[in-house]
Design a protein around this nucleic acid. Structure first.
Lengths: 351, 351
DNA sequence: CCTCTGAGGTGACACGTGTCAGTAACGCGC
DNA sequence: GCGCGTTACTGACACGTGTCACCTCAGAGG
C-alpha cells in the first residue's frame, strides 16, 4: 500500500508547528517574523517528507494559476508557421520560466469552432493568453479584452487596442529593397507573401513602395505580383514577371517559402541567380541557408517575438503595465548569395 | 464594479436546484436520474450566466488534472530538435485534445539542474509526462516510475522498463542502404549522426551493417566515420572518406544535418552528386527537399511520434494499459535526387 | 394498511492551500 | 504595576468543485 503523498499538514506535524507557519516559511512571505530555528525545522521536515505543494490547491486558494497559454492558430501557411514555432515557443517558455510561469500550448485547427480557446480564460486555466494569427472578426477576443482578461497578440489587429507584439514588416522590407538599390538595381519587382487581406502582406508591400519612393523610382504596378504562402504561388508569380517585355533585374519576395518557387521559375528558364536575376526573401526559414544559391533574406527574430510577448503578458498580469503596449521588433538583413554581393554583416544563427 | 464570475452555486440558485444537481447535469454523470426538464433548466441557467467551471477547483476535488506535459530536453543537436518539434508537438496536442487533455510544454535547458521537471509530477501539475532525450543516469526518472507516476519516453532507455515510443532506426537505416545496393553500389560508406553513446546513432549504424551483411558484403571499418549533429562534422567526415585510396561510390549519412556538410565536402572537391557520389540521409528535415540535388533521405514520422506517445501515456493514466508498452514507428524512404535514381514512391508531406 | 422499489434529488464532507485577524509571551520605559 | 510595542506564532475561514450517503415521495404489490 503506497503511502499518501505528504501535505503541508504532515510537514507541520513533523516540524511541530502550525500549518500556517509552514505556508509562511515555504512561500517566504515577507514582513513576517519566524525565528531562524523554526524556519530550519520546517525546511528540514519538508525535505525529509519530500513535500511538494499541490498546485491545484494553491491555484484555487490564491486565485492565480501562474500559467500562460500560447494559442496557435493553424492557418493555410503551415510550413511557414512550423518554421517559426520552435523559436517563438522557446522565447515564450524562457521568459515564462524567468518570471515563474508555466506554458500551456493550444493549437487551433482550421476546422475548430471560432473562439474555442475562451474556456482557457473563462475556466481559469491560465492567467493570460498569447494569441497568434488573430482574426479581426472574432467577438470572443473583444469580450475577453473588455472583461479585463490579460491578452497579447502576435501580429496586429487594427481597431481594438489590444497589446501586441510584431515584427517591423515595413522597415524589414525597406532594408531588403534598399540593399538591392545599393547594388545598382533600378527595375525591381516584388512578389507578396500572401493576399493583401493579411496585414503583414500589406506592410511588406508598403516597405517595398517606400524604399522605391525614397530612391526616386516611380512605383510600377506591373512589377507587383501576388504570392500565397507556398512555392507554387511563387513559381507562378515569378513566371509572370519573367514574361514582361522589360523584365526586372531583381525581385523582392516577401516570403522565403514563396521565394523557393520563384527561384525554381528563374532556373527553369535557364537564367542564373544572381547574375540574371537578384533575389531577396523574407522570414529566414531554415532551408534558406542551405539552398544554392543561399538566399539573402530578412531575418525574423522568432525568439524575440516569443520572449517579448510573454514578458509583456506577464507584466500585464502582474499589473505592472508598461506605457507602450505595442512592440515592433527589428529585423535583420541576412546577406547571402542570391542578391549578388556579399557584404560584411553579422550572421546570427550561423556558426 | 465588475460582477463576480459565476460559480455553480449561482447556476443552482438560478435554476432552482441544488449545487449537486448542477454538477451532475453538467458533467453528464451516468446512471443518475434527473428529469429532462430539470436538465434543461440547469443548462439554460449555465448558458445564461456564461458559466465555466473553475478548473483549479475541479482538479483539486477530482484529483485529476487532465493535463500532460512534454518535457523537451534541449541538447547539443538543437537544429535537429527544432526540425522535429512542430510535428511532435502537433501529434501530442491532437491526441491530447482527442482524449480531452491539455498540454504543458516544458523545455529543459542544458544548464538546468538534473531532474528539474519532477515538480511537474510531484506537485500534481500534470497526470503524466512525455520525456524526450532521457539520460539513463537520471535517478529521478526511476523514482517517478517506481512510484507509479505515468511516464512515456521518446527514445529508448535500456535497462528500466519504462514505456517508450521511438522510430525504428535499424530498419530505417537498412532500407536506405538497401536502396543504394539496389542501385548497384557495392562500396558504400557511412557517417553516423552522432557518437555511439547515443542509442539512435548505434542503431542506425547497426542497420547499415545488417544491410551489407544480407547482401554478402563484408563490413569495412575504414568506411565508417563519425558525425556529431552538425554540418561541420559531416564535412570533416566526408573529406576523410574522399581521401581513401579506394573511395566509396555512395554514402549513407545518418542525419540530414550532417549530410549537408557531406554534400559540401563532395562539391568542394569538384565531384558531382549523385554521379560521382550517391548520398542518402536520415531524418527528412525541411531543408532536404529544397537543396540541389534534393536529398534522398529516411523520413521520420514526427506527428506519429507525438500522437503515439500521447495516446500511450493517456491510456496508462486511465489504467487502460496496453500489452505492448514499447512502440517502434515505421520510417519511409523518400527517394529524391541525391541517390541517383527516382523511383515511384509516395511522398507524404510534399504537395 | 404496510412494505418495498425506484425516480429525483439534496446535504455535507473532502480536496490542500493562502491568508487575515488575533493571541500569548516578553522586554521595556515610567 | 501597567501600558505598549514587538516577536513569534496559530485558528479559522475561504477558494469552487466532485461525490457519497441519504432523503422524500409516488406508485406497485401483498
Amino acid at each position: 500500500m503506497a503511502p499518501r503523498r505528504p501535505t503541508s499538514r504532515d510537514v507541520a506535524r513533523l516540524a511541530g508547528v502550525s500549518r500556517t507557519t509552514v505556508s509562511l516559511v515555504l512561500n517566504n512571505v515577507p514582513d513576517v517574523h519566524i525565528s531562524p530555528e523554526t524556519r530550519q525545522r520546517v525546511m528540514d521536515a519538508a525535505r525529509q517528507l519530500n513535500y511538494y505543494p499541490d498546485v491545484s490547491a494553491r491555484r484555487l486558494a490564491s486565485g492565480r494559476t501562474r500559467t500562460i497559454a500560447l494559442v496557435w492558430h493553424r492557418g493555410p501557411d503551415q510550413t511557414y508557421q512550423d518554421a517559426f514555432l520552435p523559436g517563438v515557443l522557446q522565447g515564450i517558455t524562457r521568459a515564462a520560466r524567468h518570471y515563474g510561469y508555466y506554458v500551456l500550448f493550444r493549437p487551433i485547427e482550421p476546422d475548430e469552432p471560432n473562439g474555442s480557446y475562451v474556456e482557457l480564460a473563462r475556466g481559469r486555466h491560465t492567467d493570460g493568453l498569447i494569441l497568434s494569427g488573430p482574426r479581426s472578426d472574432d467577438p470572443h477576443l473583444l469580450h475577453l479584452h473588455r472583461d479585463g482578461f490579460p491578452l497579447v497578440l502576435h501580429g496586429q489587429l487594427p481597431g481594438a487596442d489590444i497589446p501586441s507584439v510584431d515584427v517591423d514588416n515595413v522597415r524589414g522590407a525597406m532594408t531588403a529593397v534598399e540593399h538591392l538599390l545599393a547594388l545598382g538595381h533600378r527595375r525591381i519587382g516584388t512578389i507578396t507573401n500572401a493576399s493583401l487581406a493579411y496585414t503583414s502582406s500589406r506592410q511588406r508591400l508598403d516597405g517595398y513602395r517606400q524604399a522605391l519612393e525614397q530612391a526616386g523610382i516611380p512605383f510600377d504596378e506591373d512589377l507587383v505580383r501576388y504570392g500565397n504562402f507556398d512555392e507554387g504561388s511563387g513559381q507562378a508569380a515569378m513566371e509572370m514577371l519573367l514574361s514582361l517585355d522589360r523584365r526586372p533585374t531583381a525581385v523582392f519576395v516577401a516570403s522565403d517559402m514563396v521565394a523557393m518557387g520563384a527561384l525554381r521559375a528563374i532556373q527553369d528558364r535557364g537564367l542564373r541567380v544572381p547574375e540574371d536575376m537578384a533575389v531577396v526573401g523574407f522570414d529566414d526559414i531554415p532551408p534558406s541557408r542551405f539552398i544554392a544559391p543561399a538566399l539573402t533574406t530578412v531575418h525574423v527574430p522568432t525568439f524575440g517575438l516569443g520572449w517579448s510577448a510573454a514578458e509583456l503578458l506577464i507584466r500585464i498580469i502582474e499589473q505592472d503595465i508598461p506605457n507602450e503596449i505595442h512592440a515592433l521588433l527589428k529585423t535583420e538583413l541576412m546577406v547571402r548569395e542570391s542578391c549578388g554581393r556579399r557584404t560584411a554583416v553579422g550572421r546570427p544563427g550561423e556558426q
